[in-house]
Amino acid sequence: MPGKPAKKQKRQQFKKDVEGEEADGRLPQKKFYRQRAHANPFSDHSLEYPRSPSGMDWASHYPAYAVKSNEGEGRDESRGEGETAKPRSTSKQVEIADIGCGFGGLLFALAPKFPSTLIIGMEIRTSVTEYVQEKVRALRVQHREDGGYQNAACLRANTMKFLPNFFEKGQLGKIFLCFPDPHFKQRKHKARIVSYTLNSEYAYVLRPGGVVYTITDVEDLHNWMVEHFEKHPSFERVSKDEQEKDDCVEIMRNETEEGKKVTRNNGIKYVALFRRIEDPPWP
């Protein structure tokens, strides 16, 4: 593809420039990180993912929250038999996940809003992930004084396959699914980020009371997401009143890159929130 090597070169040059210069707070430029909007969630990407949540090295993503090796032990013992180096953990667990975070607009808006909560952006496209990671690094440098953005990070992942590898049962309080790929074609519907069967995985990583936030400008996809969450017994739709009182909804409408595009286009944004309800007793 023409133009691709140039982008790659620029990215590498940028990386080289800021490397070593710890104080370099220059922001990366989006134009060198653009990548086509679709990725096939079924293909065997060469992805990196932890064997299990206890094998996740969160400390490398949130160095300000890293704990010394002697702390945070206990629950790793049983599971980590085959794992070599013990992963470093953080003093807090990630509680907010932005799935398909794109260029990180929402992530960077949420970080100051929830300064004491660890937030992770998850993105399947390599260079887009790289952009967000560079931006995290730059913002942390810019905010060295006040410690801002230490709670935001981004990693490359195919969450449709590997979400339970990253998070323990009930670990998350909020999941954002913002402007997901609509996959218009009927035969591609299984590739949608929301489906009855995938919702079980969102329910698994969410604690009771936790919320899934969805927004899209495609009415059809909105209806699809509502239908599939409402059909799932682990979720209930959050009322319109309550939805509009949630600050995150405003941020989601206005701070995501896609959200801004839709505004420029005078498009309509469809929002729906779903609360994780407590599991019923065994029959």
Binding site: R36, A37, H38, F179, P182, F184, K185, D217, V218, E219, D220, L221, E258, K261, V262, N265, N266, G267, I268
Partner: peptide
């Protein structure tokens, strides 16, 4: 009714599908 409208933000490919 098509799934997308002309107001929908599109990538090239989605535009073709539309």
């Amino acid at each position: 009714v098509p799934a997308a409208s002309v107001l929908t933000v599109h990538s090239g490919r989605n535009r073709k599908v539309l």
